[in-house]
Design a protein around this nucleic acid. Structure first.
Lengths: 168, 168
DNA sequence: TATTGTTATACTCTATAACTATA
DNA sequence: TATAGTTATAGAGTATAACAATA
């Protein structure tokens, strides 16, 4: 018995040729089994929101993490690296390069703490505070846009409540 | 005039020593200016949800992206790589290694399309379908847990509606 | 001994350009 | 000329281990 004759047909890359008709991608893209999953819609909404955030902050050349650090240092001047990183849920090892960049761009500075000579007290510079004010304006416009997309303040508040329940 | 005497005090790393008292981290972590931002809460909720997802799927050794591919191929057998990647918003270049891993683990297979010899038709194997069923069970339990955390089906449906408005 | 900032390192995810074989 | 799959590569983000200075 000739095995070669019984072997299924293969293409140039050695893959077995399928008899199944191709799926219409327009149909497939309209209904994915993932669409009903909370986690999947959460990820999609978060991705879309961050993409727009990045676009709106491009003029300031601030990435989300950099914006977050500037906002936190603006609200809590004198924070030490360990605590700033903890607030933002960033590992202290990864916070170093982030802070280096902000310092190099003249937005923030590390001052030695007189109480504990191992640690720094972090502050915004004048330039950093000016950038923080402009960033806050952009953020507020973005927030207003999101609220209106959600259908108003009550809907936005509802979303925040529900998200908080997921965050634990 | 002695410039050295007027220079501010510095620590061993050359940083100016700050006079400001250190911020109480317990206070700071309770109120960050980011807490009021929809995008920030969205990110936190998404991170927490994905962390739990990863934990629940550890027994199956499936990452979120791998779970997603298996679910999509289960629902749409014969999809070609380009369309599977498009449905999941993954670049086709990045889909290759993902599909390689699923194929190597015996969950999925590439079959050559008879219509277009450039492309593959993607299918789950028997093992892949069994894994998909088990994954669907884990996913359903996780979904039920999320719904109950949200306060019930009406609340969950509301969240999905609001998230869809953000996704655009 | 423990902690702060740091370096080094690794792994995932994502993004782009360029190649090949087909169409 | 354009498309499907692929490779190579680079950039973020994230995780751990280990070290020096300091507590």
């Amino acid at each position: 018995m000739n095995l070669r004759d019984n072997a299924p047909p293969r293409n140039s890359r050695g893959k077995i040729i399928s008899d199944a008709p191709p799926v219409d991608p327009a149909v497939a893209s309209r209904s994915s089994p993932l669409d009903a999953l909370i986690g999947y819609q959460l990820r999609r909404a978060q991705l879309a929101t961050f993409q727009e955030f990045i676009g709106r902050f491009r003029p300031l050349k601030l990435r989300p993490a950099e914006f977050a650090v500037i906002m936190v240092l603006g609200a809590h001047p004198g924070l030490k690296q360990r605590d700033a990183a903890a607030i933002l849920a960033i590992k202290r090892a990864n916070f170093v390069a982030l802070m280096d960049r902000l310092e190099k761009r003249g937005f923030a500075e590390r001052k030695a703490s007189s109480a504990d000579r191992r640690s720094y007290a972090l502050f915004l510079t004048d330039k950093g505070r000016a950038t923080a004010r402009e960033a806050a304006r952009i953020s507020e416009r973005f927030e207003n846009s999101l609220v209106s997309r959600l259908g108003g303040k009550r809907e936005a508040a509802k979303l925040m409540l529900l998200l908080a329940r997921l965050t634990g």
